[in-house]
Computed example of a mutant assay.
Amino acid sequence: MPDLWMPGAIRADVGDHAPCDTQYPAKAIAHITWDRNATAAKPQTLVPFTNLEAYFTGGGVGMAPHILWDPFSGQFAQFYPADSRSKSVVDLAGGTRTNRAGRVVIQIEALFFPYCKAPDGKVYAQLDDTPCKGWQQLQDWVTSWGVPQAWPMGHPTDFSPHRNEHVWETEGGWYGHSQVPENTHVDPGSWPAFIAPAKPPQKPVYEPFPGTSFFTTGRKSPIIAAMHARLVAVGCNHYASPANANVWGPGDERSYAAWQRKLGYTSTGADGIPGPASWSKLHVPNV
């Protein structure tokens, strides 16, 4: 099961958990806190994260989302577990239960308002212009709950409302507050694009040279076994026995010296102790 509480987020559980309507597809709702009204001519200072955290656990508990996200610092606070409804959108009696209409309905409030002056001294007109620190972690956690990386009513690009109750009830994915039925808010105005998961680093085809000091009598390693097999394959088999192929010993030294001589090394250059140049040419498979 995915994590009920987002890893790394401040856990500020406000209680009052309630189930979602799981017959609907999984959703996330994107908000901005919009706690001050500013303009390009008169920007205002961003409200501190701790102020909003205190608000959602105090006087504003009745409007608390699941997640408060600071896109400038990458901080998070979480007020409800993922499988509970939260309370950040209007939910009228008799209609679709907006706060619950999904296997999960994860609501995120980004700490932002248009033309806020951030701690870095810059003024930001749109959320997606901010550093968006922590967005990858937030996106991945929401996705782990089965929320598709899609905007069924379009990726928000302005403060215009676009609402369709049928789409809301039948399609999973991300919705702006401006797209939720029964609501009149027009935020978030913009939202960062989805980020592809980071690709794991590719494993090298050949084993990197482990260093001269690695090759000491009695060293046991799958690297030595792989080297043993390669020395046999290139016709440098001076082993007395195939036993203990993964342990460095006299047979390895004799066989590696033969490989060095095959490469043209002489005298101390063919002492049977691997060096980086001869090792790279042996093409020992990565283990």
Rank of each mutant, 00 (worst) to 15 (best):
F215L: 08
W141Y: 13
M153C: 05
V180P: 03
Y124F: 15
Y175S: 02
K122S: 14
G189A: 11
D187K: 04
P131C: 00
C132A: 11
T212Y: 10
T130Y: 03
V186K: 09
G121E: 12
G102Q: 15
G218I: 01
A196K: 05
H162F: 14
V104F: 14
H177V: 11
I106C: 05
I223E: 04
K203S: 13
L127I: 05
I106T: 09
T170D: 09
E182I: 04
K122L: 14
N183D: 02
F159P: 11
W135S: 06
R163I: 05
Q107V: 09
Y206Q: 07
P161T: 07
G154Q: 04
E109Y: 07
E109F: 13
A150S: 14
Q136I: 07
D129A: 12
G146I: 03
I195A: 03
F209L: 02
I224M: 05
P222V: 10
R163F: 00
F112Y: 11
F112N: 09
G211Y: 08
G121P: 09
P208T: 08
W168T: 10
P131V: 00
P148C: 01
T130A: 01
P131D: 10
D129V: 00
G102T: 08
S144R: 03
Y206E: 12
T184L: 06
T170A: 12
R103D: 15
H155K: 11
E207S: 13
A110W: 01
P152S: 01
G176C: 06
D128M: 02
S160V: 15
T170L: 05
P204W: 01
W174N: 11
G154M: 12
G211W: 10
P188G: 15
A225P: 11
W174T: 12
A150T: 13
E171K: 15
G211L: 12
L111E: 01
Q107I: 09
D120E: 08
E171P: 07
S178T: 14
G146F: 00
Q179N: 02
Q202P: 11
P222I: 09
G173T: 04
G102Y: 04
V105K: 08
Q137R: 14
Y175P: 10
P192Y: 08
H177M: 13
Y124A: 05
W141Q: 07
T157P: 05
F215S: 03
A196I: 05
P181R: 02
Q137E: 07
E169R: 12
L111N: 14
W151N: 07
H155E: 08
W151S: 05
Y206V: 05
K203T: 15
W151E: 12
A196Y: 00
Q179Y: 03
P188M: 15
T184D: 08
L127Q: 00
E109V: 06
P131R: 01
C132Y: 00
H177K: 10
Q137I: 03
T130N: 00
F112M: 13
D120T: 03
